[in-house]
Write a protein that binds this DNA or RNA. Sequence first.
DNA 1: CACGAGACCTGTTCGC
DNA 2: TGCGAACAGGTCTCGT
Length: 273
Amino acid sequence: MPELPEVETIARILRQGAPGQPPLVDRCILGARLLWERSLATPSPAEFATRLEHQVIEDIGRRGKFLTFRLSRDWLLFHLRMSGDLVVRPLAATPEPHDRLILALEGDIALAFNDARKFGRVWLVDEVDSVLGSLGPEPLDDSFTADVLFAHLHATRRQLKPLLLDQAFIAGLGNIYVDEALNLARLHPLTISNTLTLAQAGELLASIRTVLRDAIRRNGASIDWVYRGGDFQNYFRVYQRTGLPCPECGTPIARITVGQRGTHYCPHCQPWE
DNA sequence: CACGAGACCTGTTCGC
DNA sequence: TGCGAACAGGTCTCGT
C-alpha cells in the first residue's frame, strides 16, 4: 500500500495524534498480542513480547518506507508492504479481521497492525542498521544533491523505472511516485540511467521532490478500501490513468509492464530516446 | 551485472 | 449471476 508520503502521514498521525486520536509518544507498552507469527521478522515471538513490555515509545519517525519507533531500549520497526496499516483503537475494542499484532498501551488504547495480504513485517532490534542499513538516500534530504544523483545514475546501466524502485538506490519511492516523477521530469521509464545529462538528473531530483512534497501536503494517496484522509489520488498525472489525456498535451496515457509492474507514461511528453 | 520469473498472500475488479 | 483471470501502493530469491 504505502509509499513515502503515506508512511510519513501515518508516522505523523501516530506521533502527534489526530482529531479523536491521542498521540502515542511517551506512552508505555504494556503488552503484545501476536496474531500471525510470520508478521514478526525478529526476534522470536516469546522474546518479542517480554522485551517490549514496559518500554516507552520515545519517538516515531520514518526512514524510506519503514516506520520507526524509538523505544526506551530498542527500536520497533514496521514495513507495511502492500496492505499493511497501523491504527489506534480503544483497548477494549474487538480485533478487526486481518489484525496481525496488537500492542496494549498505557491509557487504555491499543495500536493494531492490520495487514490483509500478510506481506508486512515487524522488527524489534537494539540497533537499526541491521534492517535499515542497505537503504539508499532519503530523497528529501538536503545532502542528496543533483551531483550525487548524477554520479549514482552513471555508476550503473539500468532502466530508470526499476532503478528508482530499488530501495538501495533511493529510499521511499514506489510504483505511484516513480511514474509520477518520471512524467514530471519528461523521462521515459525505460531510459538507461547512465545516458542522463547532469541537467536531466537535476530535473529528475526536482521532480521527485515536487511529487513527494505535494503528496505529503495532501496526506498521501488513498486507493481502494484503505482511506486515511489523503487525497493525492485526485492529482495523479499518469498513475492508473491509462487512456486518459495527459495533463500537459492531451495525448492518451500509455501503460506498459516493466519489471512486472504496471507503468504509466505519456508517449508524447516522455518519448523513447 | 541486469533482468525476468516466481514466491509470498488476500481481496477486488474485469471479461466472458 | 457466476466464475476464473487479471490486477493491486512491495520485496526477496533464483536462474539466465
